[in-house]
Design a protein around this nucleic acid. Structure first.
Lengths: 160, 160
DNA sequence: ATTGAAAGAGTCTCAGT
DNA sequence: ACTGAGACTCTTTCAAT
């Protein structure tokens, strides 16, 4: 499953490294993985064609910019059929950075990033509560992020 | 607040663009923002020195690699003082990609990324349930990710 | 498929404004 | 502070293996 793609260990190694650090040069990464820079280049081009590498982004320390209130909100819907409409409304709120439609305790689950509690209160009270279809919400404020990392795509035991 | 840093509109514009697309060249970004490539370079160097730009990463389409089961797990602890120990244990499980210590309904909140339900079941039953200090957990499986985006750092009204 | 080298493009530095 | 040009480094292409 998914391995119609036919990726080998080198592909996964490249992904694993550059998922965390896209700055490393092809020459240096090649040295590290015992191939030439040209080979790294060919592999990355292949991964781009496959749609596995879709771009790159700068890591921004949003905390340093003042966005240090991370909050998770579980949302109960009046009817789960209202999901699409509610999602459309939630997308208009820039502080909501992620939204998932879920099974389990909540119907939807959102992540909110704010500069302070005042701004959070504004989003929770003035924005969320006015959206039709939301029955109620439960708020989890993050006191500390223990870690936030990437998936381990390179499982040594699985990949040849 | 946070603006001992003295960032101007140009800085925020650079951050906003490159947070989503780090591939754009300084020359092109300069054109877009009506300054020279050299100025973009100077600003990015400044942002790196300030610790606001901390690196860059490749965007990997993990779904295409088979990791298409995203799950959120709320964790109830026996005592909240066990937080550190539990976090240490959870960090050893590679499928757990994110962990927050939270106020509210749960004591801790984790995100798990798996290849299939079998693997998820393994993590939930064999791994999580054996960690001392965890009283019980609640699982939210994501059926769909509506969106996942960056914070809006550039608020036109706020920044001169 | 991988390599190494040449061509092309981008980053980085700096003197001038 | 910003600019533009030169030096430098990295990416990209390609002929050879």
């Amino acid at each position: 499953m998914s391995q119609k793609l036919n990726l080998d260990k080198l592909d996964y190694q490249i992904i694993q490294v550059m998922m965390e650090n896209a700055e490393i040069s092809y020459a240096d990464l090649g040295k590290k993985l015992f191939v030439s820079g040209g080979t790294i280049h060919v592999r990355i081009k292949k991964l781009q064609e496959y749609g596995i590498v879709t771009g790159s982004r700068l890591n921004i320390n949003t905390k340093a910019l003042g966005f240090d209130v991370i909050t998770f909100v579980g949302i109960y819907l009046e009817k789960s059929s209202m999901y699409e409409d509610v999602a459309t409304e939630l997308k208009k709120i820039p502080e909501i950075v992620r939204l998932n439609y879920t099974t389990g305790t909540y119907s939807m689950f959102a992540e909110i990033v704010c500069k302070d509690i005042r701004q959070l209160k504004h989003v929770l009270h003035d924005e969320l509560q006015n959206i039709k279809g939301i029955e109620r919400t439960e708020t989890l404020i993050s006191l500390e992020e223990s870690f936030n990392r990437n998936v381990l795509v390179l499982d040594e035991e699985e990949i040849n």
